[in-house]
């Protein structure tokens, strides 16, 4: 399952839980006060607090090992990308399947975004193109086909037309 779908499912499940919790609480508020008082529930806050903290800490450390920030080691191939109003210039527009490609993304005029989409229209990853700096984005393409690159940072009146493509063989 692609990450976007997983995220969406997680969010839907959380939303259902949240709505259920609010509805249950709402219904409870309509009946006569039970023996459980606010003070009793309040005393359980710490338990809840620890659970939430542990959950978040676990998520935090798991997430750190999956960041897209480029670590040491060499990519199989480097492609230079220059973004400008309103086009991308790539030093190469065809790459081999299975190779680790490093995109070195720079901007000529204003800040742009470099978003890599597969042929099904799923965002595989992105990086910002900021004037003055070079951002490195590493992607390994596992399926041959046409990949589209769209600008993902608002850059002016033709922002939505700023795109190019990459062929993976």
């Amino acid at each position: 399952m692609k990450l976007q779908t997983t995220i969406f499912v997680i969010w839907i499940i959380s939303t259902v839980i949240v709505i259920a919790a609010f509805v249950v609480v709402y219904l409870h508020s309509k009946v006569k006060p039970s023996s459980i008082t606010y003070e009793i529930i309040n005393s359980r806050r710490f338990k809840f607090f620890y659970i939430v903290v542990i959950l978040f800490l676990a998520l935090f450390f798991v997430a750190l090992s999956y960041t897209p920030y480029t670590r040491e080691g060499k990519a199989d191939e480097i492609i230079g990308v220059k973004a400008r109003m309103f086009s991308f210039v790539l030093t190469k527009d065809t790459v081999d399947c299975g190779k680790l490609i490093e995109f070195r993304v720079a901007a000529e005029d204003v800040t742009h975004g470099f978003g890599m989409y597969d042929s099904a229209g799923t965002l595989l990853g992105q990086v910002q193109a900021m004037p003055g700096y070079i951002n490195r984005l590493r992607i390994q393409f596992d399926t041959p086909g046409k990949y589209n690159i769209f600008c993902l940072e608002y850059c002016g009146s033709q922002h939505h037309q700023m795109k190019t493509s990459l062929i993976v063989k």
Partner: peptide, 25 residues
């Protein structure tokens, strides 16, 4: 409730590997 639901979606997006695929969408 809406703040909570939106907050969950925001926290998901504040996770770096997720942001990599969701930022500016």
């Amino acid at each position: 409730a809406m703040w909570t639901i939106g907050g969950v979606a925001a926290l998901i997006d504040a996770t770096i590997p997720v942001n990599f695929k969701m930022h500016n969408t």
